[in-house]
Design a protein around this nucleic acid. Structure first.
Lengths: 209, 209
DNA sequence: GTCATCATGTAAGCCGTTACATGATTGC
DNA sequence: GCAATCATGTAACGGCTTACATGATGAC
């Protein structure tokens, strides 16, 4: 899931870790507060897998002026100490590779699993990268899940007032979600039919919001 | 969190694991699908900690009466087989201990942490076990969190339509949650003032739903 | 020259999952 | 008698968090 989010954000252009996190909170309020302890390892993993590649921060000299001094000045030593051992400490800007783009698409499409309960919002945020029919499929799958969940657990009565208020409120929320999905489905359908058999009106850029 | 849910459910009377899970889905749709792989270990842990105690299933003969029944013999043998080694295989009915009751209350009250983002619904389900002022505090803390979250991440524009639709829908959901909390707060306030200084009208049993 | 913020990382651990393994009960 | 369901558990593992540790940059 984190991978999906990272690859998705990088689809719009190179970013460094810190910035990725910032956007994660800002744009996808859902995943708010992904900690560095999971973000950086995830980036390292993705790099190792060849899905992303580092392009060293441009604002730092890319080609290090290889200092000939063996001992060197203390200040210099401290700032460069790590270069030989594990890489420099500065912005590491990540960029999607071709493989990464492929990975992203398969992550985005594939998901009959039940975890798209949480990842639906994330997926839909990246819906522009999906084919129109995949978009519709995603929406309808999600809708079915919600309907299912509603019919499943609704005894509601014979709960004490507090518990009941929670259940009822949650149910109302799910109903709203379904209504929202119905809007989105309608929009998608309209768009699809308008592009497949080009009618009179252009109707460009229909907003799903 | 699972502990809280378990202890809360057991506050209404003894239950066995399977039933706890059933109620978890039914009553608290939130935690739906807690797996056995986490439920049973949790119960074991709680038992070890002395928060719950096992009362062997009453529907099974505790003192096994030597039935003359033929088919019963095999079944009895089989069910007894493990008694010496690891305990019998049958319903294990759990019951809250006094310590468990205390643990439950502290779990329910204590939580300045950020995880009550997810646990709020659970907590409120058990609000009847909270003192009136603790109930109000819980509601107001939750409200503050939601308001905070709303003001935090709302650039909203300059996102593509799909991402925007997600963000906007989420924001609307949060607003609805806040409105709901406001209702609950009003109800609590009314109840509190009506019980502290008893006015004319009884106004018994105000439903928060 | 020091403080806040930006920036990257490691280590330990929690909480939960899936997959596996087994036994008991009930209905047909 | 056999299948479905009820019922309990273990093992392996995964993802994310907190806490820790470090370094660079810019503002004042």
């Amino acid at each position: 899931m984190l991978d999906l989010a990272i690859l998705g954000l990088l689809s719009d252009g190179p970013l460094h870790g810190y910035e990725i996190r910032r956007r994660l909170r800002a744009q996808l309020g859902l995943i708010a507060n992904v900690s560095f302890g999971s973000l950086y390892p995830a980036l390292a993993r993705l790099e190792k897998a060849g899905d992303v590649a580092v392009i060293e921060g441009q604002d730092l000299p890319v080609a290090l002026p290889a200092t000939g001094s063996l001992s060197g000045q203390r200040a210099q030593l401290r700032s460069k100490r790590l270069v030989g051992t594990r890489g420099r400490r500065s912005k590491k800007i990540y960029q999607l590779t071709d493989k990464g783009r492929t990975t992203f698409e398969s992550l985005l499409n594939a998901a009959p699993s039940n975890d798209d309960q949480r990842t639906f919002g994330l997926r839909w945020s990246f819906a522009r990268f999906l084919a129109p029919n995949a978009r519709l499929a995603l929406l309808e799958r999600r809708r079915a899940q919600l309907v299912q969940g509603l019919s499943d657990g609704v005894p509601s009565d014979e709960l004490d007032p507090y518990a009941k208020s929670v259940v009822d409120h949650a149910a109302k929320g799910v109903e709203r979600d379904i209504a929202w999905l119905d809007e989105l489905i309608a929009i998608e359908r309209a768009q699809q039919s308008s592009t497949t058999n080009p009618p009179a009106s252009p109707a460009a850029e229909v907003s799903p919001g």
